[in-house]
């Protein structure tokens, strides 16, 4: 049954700016992205339409390998972020003395108020060949010669985990806060061990938080440019760098649009599958 509604002045006043925002800044630009990705321009400047830009993507192994690599690493980073953040969230909500909780929460949030660039820069001066860690290790005689710890995959993954930590920890804390302690107590009294409690009580209860954290972390990692670029160095091969190169370096906007659209499809697809697998809804997860 259609809902009854009237066109009233307040409705018009609220709807107009929102429609302008969503249509002009979200819908039309993405339609244009799709349109431009189908546009093919040859050397003489003749324009035709077709899937050539997408075919290029599949023909050049470097493109689709980078794409797969980015996707796999992003999923890995999401999982690692979860594994690191869960004990932290559990400690703050369930183990720490209540009077420290506020303080610990503030400590947890503080670094993320600072720009991502500053944090990545901090890691760079810690890890590079002339960096602080190398300085101490050579001083202590553990290393005879400083080694380059930046510009490899392990460092890059660590940097990505670091960067996105907050977006996993906060939803986990808020979801674990609502977990009734007596459930854990009951399980303990009935003889459950830690593994059982973790997998049968804590994780099922935390599922909405895990899903929303994972979605945000995955999306941010997939779309990250700074961390792979600065910590992964020349061979970080992150897909956003391919997009950047097409747009800024080669000035091939049509190819870049095709890459951008593929990345958008990938991120939407993984998020959609994640939501379906865990039976969550996007509108519930974001709250």
């Amino acid at each position: 049954m259609p809902r009854r509604f009237h066109i009233t002045l307040p409705l018009v006043c609220f709807l107009t700016p929102v429609l302008l925002w969503l249509v002009l800044m979200i819908v039309l630009p993405h339609v244009d992205l799709l349109r431009m990705s189908l546009r093919v321009e040859d050397i003489e400047g003749n324009v035709s339409w077709g899937f050539a830009n997408y075919l290029n993507f599949f023909k050049e192994p470097i493109y689709w390998l980078t794409f797969v690599r980015t996707a796999v690493y992003s999923i890995m980073v999401t999982f690692m972020t979860f594994v690191v953040a869960l004990p932290v969230a559990f400690y703050i909500t369930k183990v720490a003395a209540p009077r420290f909780q506020g303080f610990l929460m503030m400590l947890l949030l503080m670094p993320f108020w600072v720009s991502e660039l500053v944090r990545v820069y901090g890691w760079m001066i810690l890890l590079r060949e002339s960096g602080v860690i190398n300085h101490f290790l050579t001083r202590l005689g553990i290393l005879t010669q400083p080694i380059e710890m930046l510009y490899n995959d392990v460092t890059m993954v660590m940097g990505l985990v670091y960067t996105s930590m907050l977006f996993m920890a906060v939803p986990l804390v808020s979801v674990l806060e609502s977990l009734d302690d007596s459930l854990i107590e009951a399980a303990y009294d009935l003889g459950a061990n830690m593994g059982t409690i973790l997998f049968r009580i804590v994780i099922p209860h935390a599922m909405p938080g895990i899903v929303s954290g994972s979605i945000v972390v995955f999306m941010l990692t997939l779309g990250n440019y700074l961390t792979p670029n600065l910590m992964g160095g020349k061979n970080s091969l992150w897909f956003t760098e391919q997009i950047y190169n097409q747009f800024i370096a080669s000035f091939n906007w049509n190819q870049g649009s095709a890459f951008g659209f593929l990345l958008l499809v990938l991120s939407s697809l993984v998020i959609w599958v994640g939501l379906k697998l865990t039976r969550q809804k996007l509108s519930r997860v974001v709250q």
Binding site: L22, I26, P29, I215, L220, G223, G260, L263, S267
Partner: peptide
């Protein structure tokens, strides 16, 4: 539908938003 559209910037990578708006 409009509510869903309003949420969509949360799941669109910032780089994509940037290039889309540049193109448009």
């Amino acid at each position: 539908a409009l509510y869903f559209l309003m949420l969509s910037p949360l799941v669109i990578p910032g780089v994509i938003l940037g290039i889309s708006i540049l193109l448009f």
